[in-house]
Design a protein around this nucleic acid. Sequence first.
DNA 1: AAAATGGATTGATCTGGATCAAGACTTTTA
DNA 2: TAAAAGTCTTGATCCAGATCAATCCATTTT
Lengths: 193, 193
Amino acid sequence: MFDLFFTHINQKVNLSEAEQQEVKTFFAPKKLRKRQYLLQEGEPCKYLVFVEKGVLRSYNVDSKGVEHIIHFAMEGWWMGDIYSFLSGDPSGYNIDAIEDAELLMITLDGFEQMMVKVPRMERYFRILFQNNIISKERRLISSISYTAEEKYLRLVESSPELLQRIPLNLVASYLGITPETLSRIRKKLTQKK
Amino acid sequence: MFDLFFTHINQKVNLSEAEQQEVKTFFAPKKLRKRQYLLQEGEPCKYLVFVEKGVLRSYNVDSKGVEHIIHFAMEGWWMGDIYSFLSGDPSGYNIDAIEDAELLMITLDGFEQMMVKVPRMERYFRILFQNNIISKERRLISSISYTAEEKYLRLVESSPELLQRIPLNLVASYLGITPETLSRIRKKLTQKK
DNA sequence: AAAATGGATTGATCTGGATCAAGACTTTTA
DNA sequence: TAAAAGTCTTGATCCAGATCAATCCATTTT
Protein backbone atom coordinates (compact mmCIF):
# COMPACT_ATOMS: atom_id res chain seq x y z
CA MET A 1 0.00 0.00 0.00
CA PHE A 2 2.78 2.43 0.92
CA ASP A 3 5.24 1.19 -1.69
CA LEU A 4 4.85 3.90 -4.28
CA PHE A 5 4.43 6.46 -1.52
CA PHE A 6 7.84 5.90 0.05
CA THR A 7 9.51 5.42 -3.29
CA HIS A 8 8.41 8.92 -4.19
CA ILE A 9 9.32 10.47 -0.87
CA ASN A 10 12.72 8.80 -0.77
CA GLN A 11 13.50 10.29 -4.18
CA LYS A 12 13.50 13.71 -2.53
CA VAL A 13 14.50 13.07 1.10
CA ASN A 14 15.81 9.88 2.62
CA LEU A 15 13.68 8.56 5.45
CA SER A 16 14.99 6.01 7.94
CA GLU A 17 12.90 2.92 8.67
CA ALA A 18 11.81 4.54 11.95
CA GLU A 19 10.75 7.74 10.21
CA GLN A 20 8.76 5.75 7.67
CA GLN A 21 6.91 3.96 10.45
CA GLU A 22 6.18 7.31 12.08
CA VAL A 23 4.96 8.85 8.82
CA LYS A 24 2.66 5.91 8.11
CA THR A 25 0.68 6.60 11.27
CA PHE A 26 -0.56 9.91 9.87
CA PHE A 27 -2.13 8.44 6.75
CA ALA A 28 -5.34 6.51 6.18
CA PRO A 29 -6.08 4.51 3.02
CA LYS A 30 -9.17 5.18 0.92
CA LYS A 31 -10.60 3.70 -2.26
CA LEU A 32 -12.59 5.71 -4.75
CA ARG A 33 -14.71 4.37 -7.60
CA LYS A 34 -14.75 6.01 -11.02
CA ARG A 35 -16.97 9.13 -10.92
CA GLN A 36 -17.07 9.15 -7.14
CA TYR A 37 -16.36 12.48 -5.45
CA LEU A 38 -13.52 13.05 -3.03
CA LEU A 39 -14.61 16.66 -2.53
CA GLN A 40 -17.59 18.72 -3.63
CA GLU A 41 -17.76 22.47 -4.03
CA GLY A 42 -18.80 24.16 -0.81
CA GLU A 43 -17.24 21.56 1.51
CA PRO A 44 -13.91 22.23 3.18
CA CYS A 45 -11.11 20.07 1.78
CA LYS A 46 -10.37 17.88 4.79
CA TYR A 47 -7.69 15.69 3.26
CA LEU A 48 -4.58 16.00 1.23
CA VAL A 49 -4.25 12.75 -0.70
CA PHE A 50 -1.47 10.80 -2.36
CA VAL A 51 -2.56 8.74 -5.37
CA GLU A 52 -1.33 5.13 -5.15
CA LYS A 53 -3.44 4.00 -8.09
CA GLY A 54 -5.89 5.51 -10.57
CA VAL A 55 -6.50 9.07 -11.73
CA LEU A 56 -8.24 12.00 -10.06
CA ARG A 57 -9.17 15.40 -11.38
CA SER A 58 -10.04 18.69 -9.69
CA TYR A 59 -12.25 21.20 -11.44
CA ASN A 60 -14.39 24.23 -10.86
CA VAL A 61 -17.64 25.23 -12.50
CA ASP A 62 -17.98 28.77 -13.85
CA SER A 63 -21.02 31.06 -13.81
CA LYS A 64 -22.20 29.59 -17.12
CA GLY A 65 -22.02 26.04 -15.76
CA VAL A 66 -18.89 25.12 -17.70
CA GLU A 67 -16.38 22.84 -15.95
CA HIS A 68 -12.72 23.85 -15.95
CA ILE A 69 -10.19 21.23 -14.97
CA ILE A 70 -7.54 22.57 -12.62
CA HIS A 71 -5.43 19.44 -12.18
CA PHE A 72 -5.07 15.81 -12.85
CA ALA A 73 -3.36 13.47 -10.40
CA MET A 74 -2.22 10.01 -11.35
CA GLU A 75 -0.03 7.47 -9.51
CA GLY A 76 2.60 9.24 -7.43
CA TRP A 77 0.90 12.64 -7.46
CA TRP A 78 -0.76 14.58 -4.67
CA MET A 79 -4.25 16.02 -4.87
CA GLY A 80 -6.29 18.45 -2.82
CA ASP A 81 -7.36 22.07 -2.64
CA ILE A 82 -4.43 23.42 -0.68
CA TYR A 83 -6.14 26.71 0.04
CA SER A 84 -9.20 25.10 1.56
CA PHE A 85 -7.12 22.39 3.26
CA LEU A 86 -4.97 24.96 5.06
CA SER A 87 -7.60 27.60 5.78
CA GLY A 88 -10.58 25.36 6.48
CA ASP A 89 -12.69 27.59 4.19
CA PRO A 90 -15.17 25.92 1.84
CA SER A 91 -13.55 24.81 -1.38
CA GLY A 92 -14.55 26.15 -4.77
CA TYR A 93 -13.40 22.90 -6.38
CA ASN A 94 -14.78 19.49 -7.05
CA ILE A 95 -12.49 16.49 -6.98
CA ASP A 96 -13.51 13.13 -8.40
CA ALA A 97 -12.03 9.95 -9.82
CA ILE A 98 -11.60 9.50 -13.57
CA GLU A 99 -10.51 5.91 -12.94
CA ASP A 100 -10.98 3.73 -9.85
CA ALA A 101 -8.39 4.96 -7.38
CA GLU A 102 -6.51 4.04 -4.22
CA LEU A 103 -5.46 6.92 -2.03
CA LEU A 104 -3.56 7.75 1.14
CA MET A 105 -5.14 10.60 3.07
CA ILE A 106 -3.86 12.98 5.71
CA THR A 107 -5.77 15.62 7.68
CA LEU A 108 -4.49 19.11 8.45
CA ASP A 109 -3.86 18.17 12.09
CA GLY A 110 -1.93 15.14 10.95
CA PHE A 111 -0.03 17.21 8.43
CA GLU A 112 1.05 19.78 10.99
CA GLN A 113 2.01 17.18 13.58
CA MET A 114 3.99 15.30 10.97
CA MET A 115 5.92 18.48 10.05
CA VAL A 116 7.02 18.78 13.67
CA LYS A 117 7.66 15.09 14.39
CA VAL A 118 9.44 14.30 11.13
CA PRO A 119 11.31 17.42 10.01
CA ARG A 120 12.47 15.63 6.91
CA MET A 121 8.84 15.66 5.77
CA GLU A 122 8.84 19.43 6.14
CA ARG A 123 11.75 19.40 3.73
CA TYR A 124 9.94 16.98 1.44
CA PHE A 125 6.94 19.29 1.22
CA ARG A 126 9.07 22.38 0.76
CA ILE A 127 10.67 20.67 -2.24
CA LEU A 128 7.33 19.32 -3.48
CA PHE A 129 5.82 22.80 -3.28
CA GLN A 130 8.80 24.28 -5.10
CA ASN A 131 8.24 21.87 -7.96
CA ASN A 132 4.55 22.55 -7.90
CA ILE A 133 5.22 26.28 -8.26
CA ILE A 134 7.44 25.61 -11.23
CA SER A 135 4.85 23.52 -13.03
CA LYS A 136 2.04 25.98 -12.26
CA GLU A 137 4.18 28.78 -13.62
CA ARG A 138 4.78 26.84 -16.83
CA ARG A 139 1.10 26.29 -17.18
CA LEU A 140 0.29 29.92 -16.51
CA ILE A 141 2.73 31.00 -19.19
CA SER A 142 1.16 28.53 -21.61
CA SER A 143 -2.20 29.92 -20.82
CA ILE A 144 -1.23 33.59 -21.17
CA SER A 145 1.31 33.49 -23.96
CA TYR A 146 0.47 30.68 -26.32
CA THR A 147 -2.08 29.76 -28.96
CA ALA A 148 -4.34 26.73 -28.53
CA GLU A 149 -2.05 24.67 -30.78
CA GLU A 150 1.08 25.70 -28.89
CA LYS A 151 -0.60 24.86 -25.56
CA TYR A 152 -1.43 21.40 -26.83
CA LEU A 153 2.08 20.82 -28.14
CA ARG A 154 3.59 21.90 -24.82
CA LEU A 155 1.35 19.40 -23.04
CA VAL A 156 2.36 16.61 -25.42
CA GLU A 157 5.95 17.54 -24.64
CA SER A 158 5.65 17.88 -20.87
CA SER A 159 3.06 15.22 -19.95
CA PRO A 160 2.65 12.59 -22.64
CA GLU A 161 1.38 10.14 -19.96
CA LEU A 162 -1.70 12.30 -19.47
CA LEU A 163 -2.71 12.04 -23.12
CA GLN A 164 -2.53 8.26 -22.97
CA ARG A 165 -4.92 7.95 -20.11
CA ILE A 166 -7.30 10.85 -20.16
CA PRO A 167 -10.20 11.41 -22.58
CA LEU A 168 -9.59 14.28 -24.96
CA ASN A 169 -12.60 16.28 -23.84
CA LEU A 170 -11.04 16.47 -20.36
CA VAL A 171 -7.65 17.33 -21.81
CA ALA A 172 -9.34 20.17 -23.72
CA SER A 173 -10.89 21.47 -20.50
CA TYR A 174 -7.49 21.31 -18.82
CA LEU A 175 -5.98 23.34 -21.66
CA GLY A 176 -8.79 25.88 -21.49
CA ILE A 177 -10.07 25.15 -25.00
CA THR A 178 -13.14 23.34 -26.37
CA PRO A 179 -13.10 19.67 -27.40
CA GLU A 180 -13.94 20.75 -30.95
CA THR A 181 -10.91 23.00 -31.14
CA LEU A 182 -8.67 20.26 -29.74
CA SER A 183 -10.03 17.79 -32.27
CA ARG A 184 -9.30 20.18 -35.12
CA ILE A 185 -5.79 20.88 -33.86
CA ARG A 186 -5.01 17.16 -33.66
CA LYS A 187 -6.38 16.59 -37.14
CA LYS A 188 -4.27 19.40 -38.54
CA LEU A 189 -1.14 18.06 -36.82
CA THR A 190 -1.55 14.50 -38.09
CA GLN A 191 -2.13 15.78 -41.63
CA LYS A 192 0.98 17.94 -41.38
CA LYS A 193 3.19 14.92 -40.57
CA MET B 1 17.72 47.47 5.79
CA PHE B 2 16.39 44.19 7.24
CA ASP B 3 13.39 45.76 8.99
CA LEU B 4 10.68 44.81 6.54
CA PHE B 5 12.41 41.50 5.91
CA PHE B 6 12.18 40.23 9.48
CA THR B 7 8.75 41.73 9.99
CA HIS B 8 7.55 39.54 7.15
CA ILE B 9 9.37 36.43 8.25
CA ASN B 10 8.25 36.79 11.85
CA GLN B 11 4.65 36.92 10.70
CA LYS B 12 5.03 33.29 9.61
CA VAL B 13 7.68 31.83 11.94
CA ASN B 14 9.20 33.42 14.99
CA LEU B 15 12.96 33.82 14.80
CA SER B 16 15.09 34.40 17.89
CA GLU B 17 17.61 37.24 17.86
CA ALA B 18 20.36 34.67 17.30
CA GLU B 19 18.53 33.11 14.36
CA GLN B 20 18.02 36.54 12.81
CA GLN B 21 21.73 37.26 13.05
CA GLU B 22 22.46 33.92 11.44
CA VAL B 23 19.95 34.51 8.64
CA LYS B 24 21.36 37.97 7.89
CA THR B 25 24.72 36.48 7.00
CA PHE B 26 23.23 34.72 3.97
CA PHE B 27 21.86 37.87 2.33
CA ALA B 28 23.55 40.67 0.42
CA PRO B 29 21.89 44.03 -0.29
CA LYS B 30 21.49 45.37 -3.83
CA LYS B 31 20.02 48.51 -5.36
CA LEU B 32 18.40 48.55 -8.76
CA ARG B 33 17.51 51.63 -10.82
CA LYS B 34 14.25 51.83 -12.73
CA ARG B 35 14.51 49.84 -15.98
CA GLN B 36 17.67 48.10 -14.81
CA TYR B 37 17.74 44.32 -15.23
CA LEU B 38 18.14 41.88 -12.38
CA LEU B 39 18.06 38.96 -14.80
CA GLN B 40 18.04 38.62 -18.57
CA GLU B 41 16.71 35.72 -20.60
CA GLY B 42 19.39 33.10 -21.19
CA GLU B 43 21.27 33.73 -17.94
CA PRO B 44 20.79 31.45 -14.96
CA CYS B 45 18.88 33.09 -12.12
CA LYS B 46 21.61 33.30 -9.49
CA TYR B 47 19.65 35.06 -6.78
CA LEU B 48 16.35 34.86 -5.03
CA VAL B 49 15.56 38.38 -3.87
CA PHE B 50 13.39 39.99 -1.25
CA VAL B 51 12.05 43.43 -2.16
CA GLU B 52 12.65 45.96 0.62
CA LYS B 53 11.61 48.92 -1.55
CA GLY B 54 10.35 49.53 -5.08
CA VAL B 55 8.70 47.27 -7.64
CA LEU B 56 10.08 44.54 -9.89
CA ARG B 57 8.48 42.58 -12.67
CA SER B 58 9.35 39.31 -14.37
CA TYR B 59 8.29 38.67 -17.94
CA ASN B 60 8.94 36.47 -20.92
CA VAL B 61 8.93 37.34 -24.59
CA ASP B 62 6.97 35.11 -26.98
CA SER B 63 7.87 34.07 -30.51
CA LYS B 64 6.16 37.19 -31.90
CA GLY B 65 8.19 39.46 -29.65
CA VAL B 66 5.31 40.22 -27.28
CA GLU B 67 6.15 40.59 -23.57
CA HIS B 68 4.04 38.69 -21.06
CA ILE B 69 4.36 39.69 -17.43
CA ILE B 70 4.59 36.71 -15.11
CA HIS B 71 4.80 38.52 -11.76
CA PHE B 72 5.13 41.76 -10.00
CA ALA B 73 6.95 42.07 -6.69
CA MET B 74 6.62 45.08 -4.45
CA GLU B 75 7.76 45.70 -0.85
CA GLY B 76 7.66 42.48 1.17
CA TRP B 77 7.50 40.15 -1.83
CA TRP B 78 10.05 37.71 -3.17
CA MET B 79 11.20 37.60 -6.78
CA GLY B 80 13.18 35.21 -8.92
CA ASP B 81 12.82 32.41 -11.43
CA ILE B 82 12.57 29.51 -9.02
CA TYR B 83 13.07 26.92 -11.73
CA SER B 84 16.30 28.44 -12.99
CA PHE B 85 17.44 29.29 -9.45
CA LEU B 86 17.11 25.69 -8.28
CA SER B 87 18.25 23.91 -11.43
CA GLY B 88 20.94 26.30 -12.60
CA ASP B 89 19.47 26.13 -16.12
CA PRO B 90 19.25 29.35 -18.17
CA SER B 91 16.13 31.32 -17.39
CA GLY B 92 13.45 32.08 -19.96
CA TYR B 93 12.49 35.19 -18.01
CA ASN B 94 13.63 38.76 -17.76
CA ILE B 95 13.40 40.57 -14.45
CA ASP B 96 13.72 44.34 -14.18
CA ALA B 97 12.74 47.24 -11.95
CA ILE B 98 9.59 49.25 -12.63
CA GLU B 99 10.60 51.64 -9.85
CA ASP B 100 14.00 52.14 -8.19
CA ALA B 101 14.37 49.21 -5.84
CA GLU B 102 16.30 47.95 -2.82
CA LEU B 103 16.75 44.21 -2.56
CA LEU B 104 18.17 41.49 -0.35
CA MET B 105 19.72 38.66 -2.36
CA ILE B 106 20.56 35.08 -1.55
CA THR B 107 22.36 32.50 -3.70
CA LEU B 108 21.36 28.86 -4.03
CA ASP B 109 24.30 27.75 -1.88
CA GLY B 110 23.26 30.27 0.75
CA PHE B 111 19.66 29.16 0.50
CA GLU B 112 20.48 25.51 1.01
CA GLN B 113 22.89 26.18 3.87
CA MET B 114 20.31 28.39 5.52
CA MET B 115 17.69 25.62 5.32
CA VAL B 116 20.04 23.37 7.28
CA LYS B 117 21.37 25.90 9.77
CA VAL B 118 18.05 27.57 10.53
CA PRO B 119 15.30 24.96 10.23
CA ARG B 120 12.71 27.57 10.98
CA MET B 121 13.55 29.13 7.62
CA GLU B 122 12.76 25.81 5.98
CA ARG B 123 9.37 26.13 7.59
CA TYR B 124 9.09 29.75 6.47
CA PHE B 125 9.72 28.79 2.85
CA ARG B 126 7.40 25.81 3.00
CA ILE B 127 4.64 28.19 4.11
CA LEU B 128 5.67 30.85 1.61
CA PHE B 129 5.57 28.29 -1.19
CA GLN B 130 2.18 27.04 -0.04
CA ASN B 131 0.80 30.56 -0.31
CA ASN B 132 2.48 31.03 -3.63
CA ILE B 133 0.79 27.90 -4.96
CA ILE B 134 -2.57 29.20 -3.79
CA SER B 135 -2.17 32.55 -5.52
CA LYS B 136 -0.85 30.94 -8.72
CA GLU B 137 -3.83 28.61 -8.74
CA ARG B 138 -6.20 31.56 -8.39
CA ARG B 139 -4.50 33.25 -11.28
CA LEU B 140 -4.60 30.14 -13.42
CA ILE B 141 -8.31 29.78 -12.82
CA SER B 142 -8.79 33.43 -13.75
CA SER B 143 -6.87 32.88 -16.88
CA ILE B 144 -8.70 29.70 -17.94
CA SER B 145 -12.23 30.34 -16.72
CA TYR B 146 -12.95 34.04 -16.88
CA THR B 147 -13.55 36.77 -19.45
CA ALA B 148 -11.23 39.76 -19.71
CA GLU B 149 -13.61 41.86 -17.63
CA GLU B 150 -13.90 39.22 -14.90
CA LYS B 151 -10.11 38.86 -14.80
CA TYR B 152 -9.75 42.58 -14.28
CA LEU B 153 -12.40 42.66 -11.56
CA ARG B 154 -10.73 39.79 -9.73
CA LEU B 155 -7.44 41.68 -9.80
CA VAL B 156 -9.10 44.84 -8.46
CA GLU B 157 -10.50 42.65 -5.70
CA SER B 158 -7.35 40.71 -4.83
CA SER B 159 -4.56 43.23 -5.42
CA PRO B 160 -5.80 46.82 -5.42
CA GLU B 161 -2.28 47.97 -4.43
CA LEU B 162 -0.96 46.82 -7.79
CA LEU B 163 -3.36 49.03 -9.73
CA GLN B 164 -2.24 52.08 -7.77
CA ARG B 165 1.39 51.70 -8.60
CA ILE B 166 1.66 49.97 -11.93
CA PRO B 167 0.98 51.46 -15.39
CA LEU B 168 -2.10 50.02 -17.03
CA ASN B 169 -0.28 48.66 -20.05
CA LEU B 170 1.74 46.45 -17.69
CA VAL B 171 -1.38 45.42 -15.80
CA ALA B 172 -2.91 44.43 -19.15
CA SER B 173 0.12 42.29 -19.95
CA TYR B 174 -0.16 40.64 -16.53
CA LEU B 175 -3.82 39.84 -17.19
CA GLY B 176 -3.01 38.45 -20.62
CA ILE B 177 -5.04 41.07 -22.51
CA THR B 178 -4.10 44.09 -24.63
CA PRO B 179 -3.91 47.64 -23.23
CA GLU B 180 -6.72 48.63 -25.62
CA THR B 181 -9.04 45.97 -24.23
CA LEU B 182 -8.21 46.99 -20.65
CA SER B 183 -8.90 50.63 -21.47
CA ARG B 184 -12.30 49.74 -22.93
CA ILE B 185 -13.18 47.56 -19.94
CA ARG B 186 -12.36 50.36 -17.52
CA LYS B 187 -14.37 52.84 -19.55
CA LYS B 188 -17.36 50.54 -19.57
CA LEU B 189 -17.12 49.94 -15.81
CA THR B 190 -16.94 53.65 -14.91
CA GLN B 191 -19.93 54.35 -17.15
CA LYS B 192 -21.88 51.53 -15.53
CA LYS B 193 -21.44 53.02 -12.02
C1' DA C 1 -29.39 -7.51 -27.52
C1' DA C 2 -31.54 -3.13 -27.17
C1' DA C 3 -31.13 1.32 -25.22
C1' DA C 4 -28.69 4.78 -23.07
C1' DT C 5 -24.55 7.29 -22.22
C1' DG C 6 -20.04 9.17 -23.28
C1' DG C 7 -16.43 10.50 -26.50
C1' DA C 8 -14.79 12.17 -30.87
C1' DT C 9 -15.31 14.36 -35.32
C1' DT C 10 -16.87 17.63 -38.81
C1' DG C 11 -19.39 21.60 -40.72
C1' DA C 12 -21.53 26.27 -40.46
C1' DT C 13 -21.76 30.43 -38.11
C1' DC C 14 -20.74 33.86 -34.55
C1' DT C 15 -18.05 36.85 -31.36
C1' DG C 16 -14.68 38.59 -27.67
C1' DG C 17 -10.77 40.39 -27.88
C1' DA C 18 -6.70 41.30 -31.05
C1' DT C 19 -4.69 44.18 -34.36
C1' DC C 20 -3.83 48.38 -36.77
C1' DA C 21 -3.94 53.26 -36.74
C1' DA C 22 -4.19 57.81 -34.95
C1' DG C 23 -4.40 61.46 -31.54
C1' DA C 24 -3.98 63.62 -26.73
C1' DC C 25 -1.53 64.07 -22.74
C1' DT C 26 2.40 63.47 -19.60
C1' DT C 27 6.99 62.54 -18.26
C1' DT C 28 11.98 62.16 -19.51
C1' DT C 29 15.89 63.43 -21.67
C1' DA C 30 19.11 66.38 -24.07
C1' DT D 1 12.29 74.39 -23.33
C1' DA D 2 12.09 71.57 -27.25
C1' DA D 3 12.05 66.94 -28.72
C1' DA D 4 11.52 62.28 -27.77
C1' DA D 5 9.58 58.57 -25.40
C1' DG D 6 5.99 56.55 -22.71
C1' DT D 7 1.05 56.13 -21.48
C1' DC D 8 -3.80 56.08 -22.38
C1' DT D 9 -7.82 56.39 -25.22
C1' DT D 10 -10.91 55.73 -29.19
C1' DG D 11 -12.30 53.98 -33.74
C1' DA D 12 -12.35 50.54 -37.59
C1' DT D 13 -11.47 46.01 -38.96
C1' DC D 14 -10.11 41.19 -38.45
C1' DC D 15 -9.61 36.42 -36.82
C1' DA D 16 -8.76 32.37 -33.54
C1' DG D 17 -11.45 29.89 -31.23
C1' DA D 18 -16.32 29.44 -29.34
C1' DT D 19 -20.86 27.95 -30.14
C1' DC D 20 -24.47 25.27 -32.15
C1' DA D 21 -25.78 21.18 -34.44
C1' DA D 22 -25.47 16.66 -36.42
C1' DT D 23 -23.41 12.15 -36.93
C1' DC D 24 -20.60 8.08 -35.70
C1' DC D 25 -18.60 4.71 -32.58
C1' DA D 26 -17.62 2.46 -28.37
C1' DT D 27 -18.91 1.33 -23.73
C1' DT D 28 -22.10 0.65 -20.13
C1' DT D 29 -26.39 -0.37 -18.31
C1' DT D 30 -30.70 -2.85 -18.15
